[in-house]
Amino acid sequence: MFNIQGIARIAFALGLASCFAQASAEELDPKAINIKLPEHINWVANPSGSESAVLVGDLSKPGLYVVLNKWKAHHNSKPHSHPNDRFITVISGTWWVGTGSDYKPDELKPVPAGSFVTHYGNEVHYDGAKDGDTILQIVGIGPATSTPAAKK
């Protein structure tokens, strides 16, 4: 048999669960928050063997941008630079990076998921993925142009 305290605890737990269920079922105010689920993120293929999805901003214009970049396995960029600093978080996979104008894909250094990298403006680098896909989040100030490095 249940005693009064046991019944009160059960009633409290059910009431609390009901409150949480009701709160999660309410609609969010679109003026306060915007959620983009993975299936609604628009990925666009790039000639370099990567895909990108612009989350915030316009890369061709001045201002803040946030982009997801997915490097497909066995694809790398050639040496290049960007005019502004870029701040990159490796979301998944291993990103492979190199610096300098001489393209040396065998000397790329691994950067594991969870790492944070800064690409400094006007400094030459190249990067990509080796055996598996890699997803990066890139944050910067546009315009986000890319300039190929002069060949030596």
Rank of each mutant, 00 (worst) to 15 (best):
M1K: 11
F2H: 10
F2A: 13
N3I: 09
G6I: 06
I7F: 12
F12N: 04
F12K: 07
A13N: 10
L14R: 09
L16T: 15
L16E: 06
L16Q: 07
A17E: 06
A17T: 13
S18E: 05
A23D: 13
A25L: 13
A25P: 10
E26N: 10
E27C: 11
K31Q: 15
I35G: 02
K36D: 08
P38G: 07
P38N: 13
V44R: 02
S50M: 06
S50T: 07
E51S: 15
E51K: 03
S52E: 03
L55A: 06
V56P: 00
D58G: 08
D58M: 04
S60F: 00
K61P: 03
P62I: 03
V66D: 06
V66N: 09
W71K: 01
K72G: 02
A73Y: 07
H74E: 14
H74A: 13
K78N: 11
H80F: 04
N84C: 01
R86W: 00
R86K: 14
F87S: 00
W95N: 06
W95F: 13
V97T: 12
G98I: 06
T99K: 13
G100D: 01
D102Y: 05
Y103C: 07
E107T: 06
P110M: 04
P110F: 09
V111Y: 09
G114E: 06
V117T: 06
V117N: 02
H119Q: 13
N122R: 12
H125P: 07
H125A: 08
G132N: 13
I141C: 00
G142N: 05
P143Q: 07
T145R: 06
T145M: 08
T145G: 15
T147W: 01
K151S: 12
